[in-house]
Design a protein around this nucleic acid. Structure first.
Lengths: 347, 347
DNA sequence: GTGAAAGCGCTAACAT
DNA sequence: ATGTTAGCGCTTTCAC
């Protein structure tokens, strides 16, 4: 099962290996005769150029390494759509690695990507420590996705989380809610910004007395834990702003378990507008991020560093927008359990 | 930004590059003094071994290439959990590539993996043509996941689709359903087996007169199209078996739009038991596959070829099982629209 | 225990 | 238009 090399092709086609190399890369000035001969032999013996050898001598792999925090979150699948499209358009391929939201495994995954000598690095919502990210950025162009930074060596693309959070809070406040609680994203990427945006927006609406943040995470479990914390503590809010859609779905689940109706008893807003939120049986009001655009922009930033030799950092913020669906409504009136109206879903 | 090489370390530590190589790989017989010196210098100048060069000389990358048909399907995220865990345990890393269920892009992705010289290939539900898969398997150990084959050069791991399909049909038949329609997975991996299993099970239950297969795909859209086809054609069934969970969710959506209630008016069964099915607001009855186990088995098969030099193909079938949730119930009685009982979800 | 030398399979000048 | 040569950065004998 030993693979043929360029030398095998050269010998058999009675040409030099340089010529084989030229032909395989589609060079212009090759006689039609030899081109055919080389191509014929290559096909015949099943020759395939060794990308490892090529990368070694060219000192570039034409690969972008993408480090994902969580393959289970559909948010990333949608960002990757944009990354792959933009990369392919420019002769690059993306290879994906994940760390399952664990610092240790992300570090290992990053290490692999670095040793593989990918030409650029896209870190999507990593939980990695900042110093590890900065270290990587000194070795190759690096862009941070959906996590904020002001570092001068690291580019970043994210949506404007504080604004997104305030979109959510304002929507709820305008519906008449006052006790709006935030289930946060813990130490997840952008969680701090969403938390701050929430607090700021609450103040703006004169609701500082009602600020309540409970600890969650960017997972379904995080949402469930948030609900547990909220209902353990006594006074329940009339609205909840969850850190992301996954957490919102976990919250939806935990609320259903407690027989709390959404949106009759409590309104719920998510973040990301993943495909999940749009499912009619979820029908979640949420904050939209332009996910494929974020992926495309990440690639663009990499290419700027690679080909235009830009050296100052760019920190791009994309505008979020609110998508109103069925999980938000005005707060319940005095006796909430009697308001058995308006189901949010068609059946 | 030029990276230091092994020679830079050697010069600075005043040793040969061979010694640096030994130290970096944690060799045993090296004096403590030089080991410290080498390690010190390496850390100091930020040396990181070049994996490309290493792979070239070792003629192995310690990488498994994973080709996914669709990153948006959570099924794969769960298979990958198993793949990554098993690979890491054996000193391999997985790199993921996708083709978005398009033959052309899958072929390109496969090409990349092959040129990268990954040590093994895991093809998860590819839509690739079989001859391309066989060609790949002649170059390196290849295992097909969730797609059946009898090829002697290609290993495979899948769940037993015909059995899974019959589990679904039997459950519905036992509830009293007769008009059970199948929304199939089109040309998707395993779709044919599920279709056959459905037909066979219908016959076994004496329901051959009610066999109806409409064309769908393994996506939400596929499910919606299936529903459109079913209700366009007149007599609606009392139960639907969708090709997978994603299609089932699309079907759920399309049914809701038509004001058809599930399970009161029609029962619905999915396939895969992805995380989606378990969400309380979906609460889908479905056929479970042991997803992480399938991933682990795929790696095991690769390792057998790699280290134990097995050469006969192994085709492993994992047992599916039925998970009964809230989308199945007995068929409606004579006047279905009056049966306003039993809601399947707590609110 | 350590170093010298020979490649791994390719590309990229540079010749011709 | 085609061949020759010199590496790319490492690992791996094989000496010492």
């Amino acid at each position: 099962m030993k693979r043929p090399t360029i030398l095998d092709v050269a010998a058999r086609a009675r040409v030099s290996k340089s010529l084989v190399s030229l032909v395989m890369r589609g060079a212009a000035h090759v006689s039609e005769e030899k081109r055919q001969r080389v191509l014929g032999v290559a096909a015949e013996i099943g020759y395939r150029p060794n990308g490892v050898a090529r990368s070694l001598v060219r000192r570039r792999t034409n690969l972008f390494g993408v480090l994902l925090s969580d393959l289970h979150n559909p948010y990333f699948a949608e960002v990757i759509d944009g990354i792959q499209a933009a990369a392919a358009l420019n002769g690059y391929r993306a290879i994906i690695s994940t760390g399952d939201r664990v610092v240790r495994s992300e570090a290992t995954a990053l290490e692999t990507l670095l040793e593989l000598r990918t030409d650029g690095l896209i870190l999507a919502s990593p939980v990695l420590e900042m110093h590890a990210i900065i270290a990587a950025s000194r070795e190759l162009p690096t862009v941070l996705v959906a996590r904020h930074t002001r570092e001068a060596s690291v580019d970043s693309v994210a949506n404007d989380d504080p604004t997104g959070a305030s979109l959510a809070v304002s929507h709820l406040a305008e519906l008449g809610h006052k006790r709006i609680t935030h289930i946060d994203g813990g130490n997840g990427a952008g969680a701090m910004e969403r938390r701050r945006g929430y607090v700021r927006a609450m103040k703006k609406h004169g609701l500082e007395a009602h600020v309540q943040v409970v600890t969650g995470s960017y997972t379904e479990d995080g949402g469930r834990q948030g609900i547990d914390a909220i209902y353990r503590d006594g006074t329940a809010p009339t609205a909840i702003f969850a850190a992301n859609d996954l957490a919102a779905i976990g919250a939806l689940d935990a609320l259903a378990e407690r027989q709390v109706r959404v949106p009759e008893d409590v309104s719920l807003v998510g973040y990301d507008n993943t495909a999940l939120a749009a499912i009619r049986h979820i029908n979640l009001t949420t904050v939209d991020q332009p996910r494929p655009d974020i992926g495309r922009m990440a690639v663009k930033l990499l290419l700027e560093r690679l080909t235009e030799e830009r050296s100052e950092a760019r920190h791009v913020l994309m505008a979020p927008s609110l998508v109103i669906r069925g999980t938000t409504a005005p707060p319940p009136t005095r006796n909430p359990r009697s308001a058995r109206t308006s189901r949010r879903r068609t059946r």
